[in-house]
Design a protein around this nucleic acid. Structure first.
Lengths: 328, 328
DNA sequence: ATTGTTGTTGCAATGCTGTGCAACACGATT
DNA sequence: AATCGTGTTGCACAGCATTGCAACAACAAT
């Protein structure tokens, strides 16, 4: 299984074996054929680990994420792994819990494997890691998360939130609410704030409800609290689709009609949003687009490590379905 | 960043550096401390690639899958990556398309990286791969897919389908249908056949509808065909949840009531099945359980490569919700 | 003082591949 | 026939870490 064995079988030196598998290397066609034959007979495959050791490039790319089973994350992981494989990288997925200790562990792991780059889908790399990776020339790319001095690609959260407000306002809404989770990521936080500010700019108040988890159950719980306290809103902006589904189900369960009594907007546009039971109006961010941007940054960064930090924003798109009242 | 640099800074040999990071190695505590200090100053991390080269163990485990963004797959990937990281492996996700060429490419990739093992979530490894991996002592584990001579873990598809039939029969159904996709995987196929056989054993016929894709849209399309041709069934078994959601939405959209007019059962129990809009009765297979079994097989197989093929079946559990009529 | 024991440390080999350099063979040219 | 050029091939080193073995120092025991 090693090049040595192939060399012996083919009656050549080990170098010849290496060259037989290196395009454009100086080797006689006959020899190459003989070596390849021997390799096939032995089931030999180049050892990319050893190759990476020599080239100081492992082709491994770390994908650090939490909640990998969540729809949007799953789409991101899928799209990114596709794009990376296309680039002949090997995506290693590091599933972390919420603690920063996990992040540190994961990062160390990737460091030890000399990952060619690391992509953070959630959580932020600790400062110590940033230092070390920079020194080792291992790019760090953040998705939907800004950090000064680091490369990142994010959707325009603020613009999305503004679009949400506009859409709700156009539908004639006047009692606004936003549903978020208690310890929001920077991205979720930006959505909330931008929405509140947009409303304020038009002299509307916004009721804010924050719950433990940013998932379906969280959305339900938030909607319950919202309906239980004071006058019911007629427009709810949920910072992600999952919470929007929970919100919708609770609102409908409570006997209110969507969108007649209350309009709901989500964020992400996960596949379920298009299903007949929901038909959720939402802001789309395209995982494949994000993946493309990430890979593009990766290429540029590897080509020139001294480039100033690259930060790509891309627009989100309002997908109009049926949870926002049509214009009067 | 190499052990050499650390050795020089600490004024010791490279061996000492290695021992400083190897638990239980013969080294003076003072030396170890000094080396660790130097390492910290330089931001040195052991190169696991080189270590793996020597030990002939890369700790890399391949996860071969298609449709990684699909709910059940995403859950599997998440659960497996957790379990593997726990075991201090590095899960590499290889996202493949439907073509067998993709599978071959992916496999080769893993081979070249000397993956410690490869787990197939979809697709079957080509015979050539099986041969080579066996020779190299790289275990191959299949999930929900049987192949003689290979290790595998699967849920009891046949039993699940029988439970589905029983439940529908108990609800008083008499006009049965099963919804599947056109080129079903062995697992989906087993579910269909077992259901049909159960029905036949009780002298019922089953209408079979097969559509292109095993997703929400496929389920919708299948339901459309089902309602368009002949008398409507009063019980539908969908071979996975995604198709069940599509089926439910189409049936309801057509003005029929679930479960009063027609009962529906799915398979997998993905999170959405529990949501208020669906409340789908389904057969649960637990991704974490599967992940545990896979890791357990992995341990045993690595401990003894000559063990006869291990094949683990685990039961599926009927989760009763509200898409099957309560017993009369 | 000599021998033995114990604990540390370095040397050198090992695992696997890529590649610069030099050697070599062979045909072509003068 | 001598020289040159060209294409092929092997040697040896680099890249990084682990580990058996031997050397060595320090200390205890006789």
């Amino acid at each position: 299984m090693s090049a040595q064995a192939v060399a012996e079988l083919a009656g050549v030196s080990r170098s010849a074996v290496s060259r037989a598998f290196t395009p454009g290397a100086s080797i006689a066609p006959a020899t190459r054929a003989r070596v390849r034959e021997a390799a096939a007979a032995l089931g030999y495959q180049v050892n990319d680990l050893a190759r990476g050791l020599l080239a100081n490039r492992s082709r491994l790319v770390g994908l650090v994420t939490s909640d990998a089973d969540t729809p949007f994350r799953a789409q991101m992981i899928s799209a990114l792994s596709y794009a990376l494989i296309e680039r002949s990288n090997v995506p290693a997925i590091i599933n972390i819990g919420p603690t920063s200790e996990d992040v540190a562990n994961a990062s160390r792991q990737l460091l030890r494997y000399r990952a060619e780059a690391t992509i953070f889908l959630s959580g932020s790399p600790p400062a110590s890691l940033v230092e070390v990776t920079r020194r080792n020339g291992q790019p760090l790319i953040l998705v939907n998360r800004a950090e000064t001095g680091l490369d990142s690609v994010h959707c325009d959260d603020r613009d999305g939130a503004q679009q949400a407000f506009e859409a709700l306002r156009m539908a004639g809404a006047s009692r606004f609410a936003v549903i978020n989770r208690a310890n929001p990521s920077p991205s979720l936080s930006a959505r909330e704030h931008a929405f509140v500010e947009s409303a304020a700019a038009s002299r509307f108040e916004t009721k804010i409800v924050r719950v433990g988890r940013a998932d379906y159950g969280g959305g339900k719980e938030a909607a319950r609290q919202l309906l239980a306290s004071g006058p019911a809103p007629d427009a709810v902006f949920c910072v992600n689709d999952l919470m929007a589904f929970g919100t919708l189900d609770h609102i409908r369960g409570a006997g209110l009609r969507v969108p007649d009594d209350v309009s709901v907007i989500g964020f992400d546009d996960v596949p379920v949003a298009a299903w007949s039971s929901y038909r959720l109006t939402t802001l789309r961010q395209d995982p494949r687009r994000i993946a493309r941007e990430v890979v593009s940054i990766l290429d540029r960064r590897l080509a020139d490590p001294d480039l100033p930090p690259i930060s790509v924003y891309f627009p989100v798109e309002l997908v109009v379905r049926e949870t926002v009242r049509a214009r009067l």
